[in-house]
Design a protein around this nucleic acid. Structure first.
Length: 666
DNA sequence: CAGTGAGCGAGCTTCCGCTTGACTT
């Protein structure tokens, strides 16, 4: 029998570590937390310094039983869970649950899974850090208090079965606020001027940087360009460098997999999980961009072998986010020598992305030369500009270029090669084109951009980004409606061979898929919470309490005191809201029913968004009701559309708003 | 599922963060 029992969080990690340690060690996994606050009854004794009541989670009963057996025969138990707040708490819960003996228990940590790191950890054990554990207990209890006191307020004031929480409610708020910005957006248009010019060595496209505001300006420019003699008025060349970016964290992996592979956040995580279990990559839930020394060596080796010494540039990245806990390495291939793997297509593609990102992070800067050509003509007031970029040395661009979430389907800027020209060269203007363009409303979030935003606010953790997105959709706060988009017309003028031609063209705008938009319920709940629970809904709330958790972890603050200071005003606020606030229905008056002269309102009813004609209190007659259809919302439905809902009462229409909890199916 | 908008009054829902399978479709 093994003398030593090592407990880590993940079974795949256990397997790896067992290989590093000798015959005397058996390594097992706890599968994450084994205990949590009681699900039912009083889990927190608020009057008694928030004393928590923990119980072994139902799905961990077997794990705990198995570990107990191994503890009995082991001489020493090594608690080797992660080096962060949650990891420390897991060790403490194991210690308590397994009834460990302090003399025979050792706490060890390592934030990279390498033989050297593990052996070093075994050489320098410590005790469980109770202050760090207390910080976790404060975090856990605060989240329970917020979630389990706020949700029932919603049941009473909005609709049953709804939920609220420190993370999810703010995630929904981001989406609601973005939608309000879009609604408030006033579209504008302008005119953009382009020219295609031919020089001795080739053609290039150049544009005028200022935007024209009126057709009058358009026409006067075109007139001035007629027969004008264009020439190169300036050529400027500037060297530039592009730097690679850090290897993946969970959040950046989710973003890139979304952009480059079209994966949803949860799909990325499940594919990564399989890569991890197969031993192809390091752990996929991490907020660290750090690479171990062994990994740096391996990457450098591989780059020098595959591309040459000049492509290697060993770089240590550091995490800027203050909330990061850095219990693991960045996400990287276990073996940099494997440029690709064989497996299911999505695993191959995600691995390819991870390999390229990690390798490129250790490669040299790309050297570029940026060229700007200015084109002018006598009699033409505007300056045309062409910008080009030439790669002088590829560096990391040989393997990888990061995508950008913000500039999808933006007009492509011609940044390729420009022909060699010199100042004073004469040019032929093949075509001057002026196109009407439109300003764009703020973009709706996609899953990955929401994760990016949450991470930048320090809200949520690598292990919760994907589940949070699932939750807010399951609760019916947000959805991803398919939008067909609308056709719009725009004008375009072309000047060639001294002839001006004007055309009216059409394009489709606003076509969308997979964009997150709030439902009526999402809007009503967010407005309600924002009005009554300003503190919780503040984007800085998490950051603020994280600072206090850090104080607790450092032993500078007492965790029960921190909770008390938070809870006392919060609870008063809850009571006050329950007693004094109106039901939140998102009611909006649409107008008067022409047939009956009664008032028409849109609001959230017991079964979701609906239209109501009349009010029994006011006109003494029973009101009429109709549910909104899919893609209709309280905020945008018109009086006409509302009346239409009463025209065909027997028509079967889809009522997807009515994704209701089972209680109502009775 | 059907297609409501409650004069029954019992008991239910809910949080965040750490982990994987065991379930269906």
């Amino acid at each position: 029998m093994a003398k030593n029992l090592v407990i880590v969080e993940s079974p795949a990690k256990a397997k790896t570590i067992e290989g590093y340690l000798g015959k005397d060690f058996v390594v097992k996994s706890s599968f994450g937390h084994v205990r949590d606050l009681a699900k039912k009854g009083e889990a927190i004794d608020i009057a008694n310094d928030f004393a928590p009541r923990y119980e072994v989670s139902p799905d961990k009963k077997q794990v705990v039983a198995d570990l107990k057996k191994l503890v009995k025969v082991a001489e020493t138990v090594w608690l080797a869970t992660d080096e962060d707040r949650e990891g420390e708490a897991i060790s403490w819960h194991l210690y308590e649950t397994l009834g460990l003996d302090k003399k025979e228990t050792k706490r060890i940590t390592f934030n990279e899974i390498t033989k050297a790191a593990v052996l070093k950890a075994i050489d320098s054990p410590r005790e469980i850090n109770k202050e760090l554990v207390d910080a976790q207990q404060a975090r856990r209890i605060l989240d329970r208090l917020v979630g389990f006191e706020l949700s029932p307020v919603l049941w009473r004031k909005v609709r049953p079965s709804l939920s609220a929480g420190r993370v999810q409610s703010v995630a929904v708020k981001l989406i609601v606020e973005r939608e309000k910005e879009i609604e408030a957006f006033k579209g504008d248009f302008f005119y953009k001027v382009n020219g295609i010019f031919t020089a001795e060595n080739g053609r290039f496209k150049a544009e005028v940087s200022q935007q024209l505001k009126s057709e009058k300006e358009v026409e006067s420019i075109l007139e001035s360009c007629k027969g004008a003699n264009f020439k190169v008025s300036d050529v400027a060349m500037k060297p530039a460098i592009k730097k690679p970016v850090a290897p993946f964290t969970t959040s950046t992996l989710q973003q890139e997999a979304s952009l480059k592979l079209g994966f949803s956040v949860s799909r990325t995580m499940s594919v990564a999980q399989r890569l991890y279990e197969a031993g192809h990559i390091t752990y996929m839930r991490t907020d660290s961009v750090n690479l171990s020394e062994t990994a740096l060596d391996a990457a450098q080796n591989e780059i020098e072998k595959a591309y040459g010494k000049e492509f290697s540039n060993r770089t240590k990245y550091t995490t800027k986010d203050t909330g990061a806990q850095e219990a693991h390495e960045a996400i990287r291939p276990s073996d940099f020598g494997k440029h690709s793997i064989n497996g299911e297509s999505e695993q191959e593609r995600l691995y390819d992305l991870i390999w390229k990102r990690a390798i490129s992070s250790q490669m040299s800067d790309a050297k570029l030369e940026r060229t700007t050509i200015k084109v002018n003509a006598a009699g033409v007031d505007e300056t045309f500009q062409a910008k080009g970029e030439v790669i002088k040395f590829e560096g990391f661009l040989k393997v990888y270029l990061e995508s950008n979430l913000d500039d999808e389907d933006e007009d492509e800027t011609d940044s390729g090669l420009l022909p060699a020209v010199s100042k004073g060269d004469l040019l032929d203007a093949n075509e001057i084109k002026i196109t009407q363009r439109f300003s764009r409303p703020p973009a709706r979030y996609v899953e990955a951009s929401l994760v990016k935003k949450l991470e930048s606010l320090g809200i949520g953790r690598p292990s919760t980004y994907a589940p949070t997105i699932t939750t807010i959709q399951k609760r019916g706060y947000v959805e991803k409606p398919d939008r067909e988009g609308e056709e719009r017309t725009y004008s375009q003028w072309k000047l060639s061979n001294d002839k001006i031609e004007r055309k009216e063209l059409t394009e489709v705008t606003g076509r969308e898929k997979n964009k997150l938009a709030p439902t009526d319920i999402g809007v009503v709940v967010t407005d309600f919470l924002s009005e009554h629970f300003v503190t919780i809904m503040d984007y800085n709330f998490t950051a603020k309490i994280e600072k206090e958790f850090d104080e607790i972890a450092k032993g500078l603050m007492d965790w029960t005191k921190m909770l008390k200071e938070f809870y006392t005003p919060f609870h008063t606020n809850v009571e006050d809201t329950l007693e004094n606030s109106e039901r939140a229905t998102g009611e909006r008056e649409l107008g008067i029913d022409p047939a009956s002269g009664r008032k028409i309102i849109a609001r959230i009813g017991r079964f979701g968004p609906m239209i109501q004609i009349g009010d029994e209190q006011v006109d003494g007659e029973k009101p009429q009701f109709a549910s909104l259809r899919t893609n209709q919302s309280i905020n945008s439905i018109s009086l006409e559309e509302a009346l239409e809902l009463f025209q065909f009462p027997k028509n079967p229409v889809s009522y997807t708003h009515l994704t209701l909890p089972t209680i109502y199916s009775v």
